[in-house]
Design a protein around this nucleic acid. Sequence first.
DNA 1: TCCTTAAGCGGAATCAATTCCACTTAACCA
DNA 2: TGGTTAAGTGGAATTGATTCCGCTTAAGGA
Lengths: 189, 189
Amino acid sequence: MNPRRERVDAARNRMKILAAAADIVAAHGVEGLAMAEVAAAAGVGVGTLYRRFGDRSGLAYALIDEREREFQEAFIEGPPPLGPGADAPARIRGFLHALADRTVEQLDLLVMAETATPFARFGGAYEAYHAHLSMLVTQARPGADAYVLADALLAPLAAPLLAHRLRECGVTVERVKAGLDDLLAVFTP
Amino acid sequence: MNPRRERVDAARNRMKILAAAADIVAAHGVEGLAMAEVAAAAGVGVGTLYRRFGDRSGLAYALIDEREREFQEAFIEGPPPLGPGADAPARIRGFLHALADRTVEQLDLLVMAETATPFARFGGAYEAYHAHLSMLVTQARPGADAYVLADALLAPLAAPLLAHRLRECGVTVERVKAGLDDLLAVFTP
DNA sequence: TCCTTAAGCGGAATCAATTCCACTTAACCA
DNA sequence: TGGTTAAGTGGAATTGATTCCGCTTAAGGA
């Protein structure tokens, strides 16, 4: 089951690719992230890109990954109210607020990734959020269908929607958070 | 401001295209809906397709449009609890349940359309849903930020999420509706 | 050290969406 | 009815992602 460690040349290429991709995004935004460009900038063939990252949205997720790991650590084992120690309703609220901020932070990459491959987000990170939130919802409201409720709380923070409201409609993240808080009243009667 | 009626030959082509597209979807599913295919089947050039429908997701929306109009009529002026006559909380609930069913009914096309063009859904239909729901939320809960809350209630019914949960995770529409009902407790204290 | 081989590589080929533009033609007017 | 023209048209060209596949090489056991 342990997929024999990646070859050292492959690891080197992965880093060259990620560095090149990060540079390109920094310089030209997400739209500039063309597979052929990245490959050329990294000095590898496009085939290598695909072998390493699967597709364009895979590359985007890889760029996101580092901050993602920090975030997941924070809500799994960091200090309250995000991590353990606060009561469930407080953690739910803390988590959603933090997720909102985190999503906004890398909005372009997230929009691109979620847009390129349908369901891309439903592998990886999304499932982690969902599992975490399900657990908290179960604690906060034992009778409820936590599985479905967790989706319902996560959905309003989908990157494309957030991007649209923030950029085209003048809505602020704070307003979105406050709106979610309204719904969270369900957990504290 | 009245964009002078579409030429008759153009209207004829629009219908040929829609008919061909509908056939193709019926025969090969949404994945079979390739622009060149549709153009060939309709006996027009691809340029014509783009002039009429803008892009692939535009074509998908056009295919959806007929049922969409019915649906919008139902919640705007149909019988309660969807249309006017019931109290706001009941209409909110009725609307969300109906939207869930309606989305499931054309899930493939909707997933495709929302996936192809980011924000495609945020033109047209989505804004109509949002406006309607905002109004009801304002009635049901005068103090609240109806604009943001409406998004939060609509987001869990996004086609890609629904498709994922229904198809990959064994969730049923009824469960999704029930989950939303839980959140709607906010409107009836 | 040498051999074997699975992992990795490059980049040409493929595939589909979208754009472009020179050419038609329906629609309206004098 | 003939002229004018904006709307409409077809399909080749472009663009960019993704696939394919014959070649290369790191890794590790003999």
